[in-house]
Design a protein around this nucleic acid. Structure first.
Length: 425
RNA sequence: GGAGAGAUGGCCGAGUCCGGUCGAAGGCGCACGACUCGAAAUCGUGUGUGCUGCAAGGCACCGUGGGUUCAAAUCCCACUCUCUCCGCCA
């Protein structure tokens, strides 16, 4: 959410941001209501002031004289007028709140202006794309051949876009989760968090999933609860409505969670394999930082996520999202794209964003820069560190051998009892 | 699921029976000052959030929403959450 004062004073910047991001929003509706609201507010506050003053007089007077009775009658009228005005104000306030929640964050100056993913900028590449002296298989074929991933049965149990892992497949998933959490907690200074996988509407609003993107989430029928689309939601909201101490910052959390996404509007895209699932695992990194440090912290966060791929020996590139591909809430975002041989392309495996104060204002997460000073909104960041299902796909494809087996990356072997290879068992 | 207790400022905690002097005692924490060579201890002063206004100021907020009243932290109603006991349960 943007600051109302900022919107009032900089409508042109807000309008330009919506154009750059390709996001709709009712800026004019906010500006016009704002003027009406301030007039209403002035009137009600003046009336309330009168009522407060006279009520005090009545209280002090003691005796219930004719004059007092007259004042009471007058105040009765004032009060009913106040009630009417308060009603109007509440209405306009909630309308403005809704409209304000619908405005996208302002892109940072460093974000290249552009229309879609074509205009994203490659920042760097890492690693070698593996060369095969045979035709590399897609990960779903590798998984089926090794009898470690079973999509038909997942379809039977639940439906499309669900996966069922067996044996070393299940173990690989678990090994990756442990490896990533161990790395980020031991090497990068994150505190491990294991959050609820269901959250309420206030949490979904805090991080920006609601009200605009309700159709992307699964809601538990008959409740106010949503299945989390990412651990970003519960972990960021962990400090909702809190005032943090300056010396606590930066706060860094690493959380494993399952993630649930309706994938509305993705019909026909990535229908095979692990790339686009309704449920997938992810280790998420979340930071709460001081405003002037957030862009540096984004670089570090991205590096922390990259380290996972480096240690796994997976080739990737870092893309800086252009304004049109940035999305609603971030001010700046890097995507990590991992090399997938069967696709012959790089695919997103992590997304690292600086939301500046956009989420913090929605969720009311503040800190006190100095004792006695006014509170300020923190900046929030998060990034996948990294998506587990897509990592499994990348490992299967990048480490596949001619005989159908898959080499286990060295850093994962401790999680496999020292074994170095997945073979058909 | 049944019975009961509670929700007040950064934290603890009074006030709620008997409505007005309560944005709210007291304590802790914190900041500043004094004392000290320095520190601790002690003493003094200050210390909620938001909206609005050029400012002085004004308004709102005692879990949430409604109601009664000239006036509500305080009375009434509904809801949410937390805790305790019982039942059930991984």
């Amino acid at each position: 959410m943007l600051d109302l004062k900022f919107v009032r004073e900089n409508p042109d910047i807000v309008r330009q941001a919506m154009i750059d991001k390709g996001e709709a929003g009712d800026l004019e509706g906010i500006v016009s209501r704002d003027a009406v609201r301030r007039d209403l507010l002035k009137e009600t506050e003046e009336l309330k002031q009168i009522r407060n003053r006279v009520s005090k007089e009545i209280g002090k007077a003691g005796a219930d004289t004719v004059a007092m009775q007259q004042k009471k009658d007058e105040m009765r009228n004032v009060s009913s007028r106040v009630k009417e005005l308060d009603e109007k104000l509440r209405q306009i306030d909630s309308e403005m709140e809704q409209l304000l929640l619908g405005l996208p964050n302002i892109p940072d100056d460093a974000v290249p202006r552009g229309k879609d993913e074509e205009d994203n900028v490659e920042i760097r590449r890492w690693g070698e794309q593996p060369q095969f002296d045979f035709e590399p298989l897609a990960h779903w074929d590798i998984g089926a051949n090794l009898n470690i991933i079973d999509f038909p049965r997942a379809g039977k149990i639940t439906g499309s876009r669900f996966a069922l892992y067996f044996g070393d497949g299940a173990r690989l998933e678990r090994a990756l989760i442990s490896f990533m959490l161990d790395l980020h907690t031991a090497e990068h200074g994150y505190r491990e968090v294991f959050p609820p996988f269901l959250v309420n509407a206030a949490s979904m609003t805090g991080t920006g999933q609601l009200p605009k993107f309700a159709e992307d989430a699964f809601r538990v029928e008959g409740t106010d609860y949503y299945l989390i689309p990412t651990a970003e939601v519960p972990v960021t909201n962990l400090h909702r409505d809190e005032i943090l101490e300056a010396e606590q910052l930066p706060i860094k959390y690493a959380a494993y969670s399952a993630c649930f996404r309706a994938e509305a509007g993705a019909h026909g895209r990535d229908t095979r394999g692990l790339i686009r699932q309704h449920q997938f695992n992810k280790v998420e990194l979340v930071k709460f930082v001081k405003p002037d440090e957030s862009f540096d912290e984004l670089e570090k966060l991205t590096n922390d996520a990259e380290k996972v791929l480096q240690l796994l020996g997976l080739s990737y590139r870092v893309m800086l999202m252009c304004s049109g591909d940035l999305g609603f809430a971030p001010a700046k975002k890097y995507d990590l794209e991992v090399w997938l041989p069967a696709y012959n392309t790089y695919r997103e495996i992590s997304s690292c964003s600086n939301f500046t104060d956009f989420q913090a204002r929605r969720a009311s997460i503040r800190y006190r820069p100095e004792q006695g000073k006014k509170t300020q909104f923190v900046h929030t960041l998060n990034g996948s560190g990294v998506a587990v299902g897509r990592t499994v796909a990348a490992i299967l494809e990048n480490y596949q051998q001619k005989d159908g087996s898959v080499i286990i990356p060295e850093v994962l072997r401790p999680y496999f009892g020292g074994r170095d290879r997945i073979s058909r068992g």
